[in-house]
Structures are given as structure tokens and as C-alpha cells.
């Protein structure tokens, strides 16, 4: 009886240790996701600073686009990891991934003139972002306050909706839906 009791204790202790360990890993991943989102916002701010200062729009614009792509890919990888671990994701994680996708979509739009296929990429990111943040019970993601300041020229933006409106990107994004009424294939 004593032996069974001690085996049960060991199993329970082991289980709680593993759970604590898993929680630490998840917390660390979430921390990285937040840090990566901060970097995405920084890259977008820097891109706007570049566009404000330079009208050559050459290789640097492409480099900024590639850089934001790398970061957003990392964020999405982390998001997928969470999904694989838990089979679901938290609202905060969905919002981070969605905001990053919108920043990438906006970045793609900056280079549509040079690369027309960027429009499709922007549409894909935008649709996926809206899909991720879709929840009728809460305030729309575009209207919520951004965790980081976004500067375009001398203007400060604190909501994605304002950024989209003021950069006249909203109409372009709405056109994405007119172009195709295909249902989104991405899982949440």
C-alpha cells in the first residue's frame, strides 16, 4: 500500500513539474512573440522614416520589406507552435499575429508600384489578419489601441483603423474582398 502511495506521489510530483516546465516554455514563447511584435512595429516605423526622407525607393525599400517578412514569419511560427501545443490560441496571441500581418500587408502595399504581385500578398495578409482577429463579442482589432506608437511623417497613429484610413490603404484593402469572394482557408 505504502509503495503504491509513494509511486502515486512521484507520478503526481513529476506531472506538476512537467506542467510547470511547459508553462515556463509557453511564457517564454509569449514573451518572444511580444518582443517580435515590437520589432515589427519598429521596422514599420523605420520604413516610414525612410520613405519620408528618400524618394529613390530602391533596394532599401525591398530590404525593409524582406526584413518585416522575416519577423512576421517568426511571429507566425510561434503562433503555430502555440496552436500545436494547446490545440487553440489565446486572444492576445491572435491579436499579435493579426497586427503583425496587417503591418506586413501595409509594407507590401508600399512597393506595389515596383512589384504588382505585392498587392495580392497584401490582400492575403489582410484577409488572414481579419480572420484571426474575428470575434463578434469583442471590440474590432482595427479599433483597439496599438501597443506601440506608429509614426508616419510627423503624424502619430495609435489605432490600425486610423493608419489604414489616413494612408488611404483602407480602400485598397476593401478591394481585396471585391476581387475574390473565396472563403478563407486559414485555420484560427
Amino acid at each position: 500500500m505504502k509503495i503504491i502511495y509513494s509511486i502515486l506521489t512521484i507520478i503526481l510530483t513529476w506531472g506538476s513539474i512537467s506542467q510547470a516546465k511547459a508553462q515556463t516554455v509557453e511564457m517564454n514563447l509569449e514573451k518572444q512573440m511580444v518582443a517580435l511584435e515590437r520589432d515589427v512595429a519598429r521596422i514599420y516605423n523605420e520604413l516610414q522614416k525612410f520613405l519620408d526622407e528618400d524618394n529613390r525607393r530602391g533596394s532599401e525599400l525591398l530590404a525593409f520589406e524582406s526584413l518585416i517578412t522575416i519577423y512576421v514569419k517568426e511571429v507566425l511560427d510561434l503562433y503555430d507552435t502555440f496552436y500545436r501545443i494547446r490545440g487553440t490560441t489565446l486572444e492576445s496571441q491572435q491579436n499579435i499575429a493579426a497586427r503583425c500581418l496587417i503591418f506586413r500587408a501595409l509594407t507590401y502595399l508600399e512597393r506595389v508600384r515596383e512589384e504588382p504581385s505585392n498587392y495580392q500578398s497584401a490582400c492575403n495578409d489582410y484577409k488572414r489578419a481579419l480572420h484571426l482577429a474575428q470575434n463578434e463579442l469583442r471590440e474590432p482589432l482595427l479599433s483597439t489601441k496599438l501597443p506601440h506608437e506608429i509614426w508616419v511623417g510627423r503624424k502619430l497613429y495609435t489605432r490600425l483603423a486610423d493608419l489604414l484610413d489616413n494612408r488611404s490603404k483602407n480602400f485598397q484593402m476593401i478591394d481585396c474582398f471585391k476581387m475574390s469572394n473565396k472563403k478563407s482557408v486559414w485555420g484560427k
Binding site: N28, S59, E60, L62, Y71
Partner: peptide, 23 residues
């Protein structure tokens, strides 16, 4: 000096290594 793709690729590697080493 306008070939910046090397920097982007190298940074992708650095970021990947950082993630690989548990951040």
C-alpha cells in the same frame, strides 16, 4: 552598396540561431 539582400539573409540566420538557442 545597393545589394542589401546579403544583410537580410544573414540577419534571418542570426534570428534563427537566436530562436534555436532558446532565445
Amino acid at each position: 552598396g545597393s545589394r542589401l539582400n546579403g544583410l537580410v539573409d544573414a540577419w534571418q540566420g542570426i534570428l534563427g540561431l537566436y530562436a534555436k538557442d532558446d532565445w
